[in-house]
Amino acid sequence: MTDTVDSMLDLMRRLPPTRTEENVAALVDICPEYADDLLGSVDQPLKLKTDRATGREYLVCDYNRDGDCHRSPWSNEYDPPLVDGTVPTPRLRKLEIAANEAFDTYREMYYEGGVSSVYLWDLDDGGFAGVVLLKKTMTPATPNEPSGSWDSIHVFETAERGRQAHYKLTSTIMLHLVNRRSDNGEGAKSDGRKRDGEVSLSGSMTRQTEQDWPLQDASSHITNTGRMIEEMEIKMRNLLQEVYFGKTRDIVYDLRSVEDLERARRQRDLQKELVGFIKR
């Protein structure tokens, strides 16, 4: 049983991140009995919905879903409407409202657009858990402009220990960047060749951290998770840009060399000869 789930997860680690949704759906079709294991372990790009009451967009995921309905963080209402849908306790809902406002500011400062949503829920042991979702999509105005999307999913759990709170954070970022070019050979700088093409860079990565932070009052949970999530996103963005994307470029240069390898070889041979000559 676990073998099947392991193989599914290994498969998802190999197949293109751009096709995660389609591939997860296909796996669920083949093995409906493992649907929960799979959906609980593989993050998928976030979907948008519009709050009927406020007209504001929000993000949907498994954590604000009840049956086929999703709860909006803005109005606390389910869509389609659900009379007895699960909602946080009034005290937690108050914190959820404040968290949504705080992360909306965070979103504006880092994303300058996009949509954010925060959902909190009570845990059986008395603590609570939550998820902070952020998504931004760039839609090109013309086919030659770059397009892309960023999805962040930060799931956290917290347990209070007196004046301290312990947090466990699991963060996933899914990123897709596309550059399209077409040159019909008539441009001023052109060499008369017709060219077109596309470069697609996509990736998904997950990281975890556990930290203790001081707790003054309930609002400390927002500043604490805020700092942790901000730190994590900075770290992961940097990893994706510098390490992961940089590595894919280096691999292209491992396949093909811009420099003439033969010439470099001849130069090395010549150098060796010279060194040998001097030693003699």
């Binding site: 293109p16 751009t18 017709k194 093409g197 596309e198 697609s200 990736g203």
Partner: peptide
């Protein structure tokens, strides 16, 4: 037509897929 595909999957799944078409006289 030039096609480059790269997969880097150490603690993640990152892929490059590029395609370039050209016509030369």
């Amino acid at each position: 037509r030039i096609l480059a595909n790269v997969h880097y999957y150490e603690q993640g799944n990152v892929q490059l897929a590029s395609e370039h078409n050209v016509e030369i006289t």
